[in-house]
Amino acid sequence: MNLKLKIWRQANAEAKGKTITYSISDISPDMSFLEMMDMHNEQLIQQGEDPVAFDHDCREGICGMCSMFINGEAHGPDRLVTTCQLHMRKFKDGDTITIEPFRANAFPVIKDLAVDRSAFDRIQQAGGFVSVNTSGNTQDANAIPIDKHDADKAFDAATCIGCGACVASCKNASAMLFVSAKVSQYALLPQGKVEATDRVLNMVNQMDEEGFGNCTNTGACEVECPKGISLENIARMNRAYLTASLKG
């Protein structure tokens, strides 16, 4: 396959970026998108040019690091996959592919396609945990009976890898799907109920402080989420937040 790549290039956070068009040839349809990017970078290095910076780590769809906005969609045109799981067979010979970083004021560009998603870390630190004494006498989690329905829903929420596709896809750059998944994965379990009130208040307040937009229930986040996190989590968080606010 021969392709044209329109890639966002930005030297650093302060620099003014621009889109540069490259041509790339001999791309196998069996390559992953990141392998295609690797090949492109090798060519750039051989030509003495600066390679394109992009985030990646596990390349198995579980770390949440790859973060490109490909042809107008987070993680590209495929569904329930991260960019590392996207394959070039999803494109046609002669295609022009536009590659941009995830855009949100809360996700500033570090360089080229790499963005700073530490806002998610700060939200998580604000309450996305369970305070457990880990001094060696930790109770086996399986000792507490948990309704299967709740356990499944908590697990579904916990599959969120924090990649930020929800923010990138949302027309308002809202982080509600991410935060609601993190709130839900604890709120549904008995271990998480103890700190439920403080957790939801603190995490939502931190989310607002980071400058994410408001959720307008378009559902784009759910469609683009590589892990299929449901909008049901947002409703659960809304409910939990309103209850917590009344408590106090």
Partner: peptide
């Protein structure tokens, strides 16, 4: 508030792919 949450807009944004 929502408009201000993304100062730099996408050059290619396929809103119709995931929302009505």
């Amino acid at each position: 508030k929502n408009t201000r949450s993304r100062s730099v807009k996408y050059q290619s944004y396929k809103g119709s792919a995931n929302a009505s």
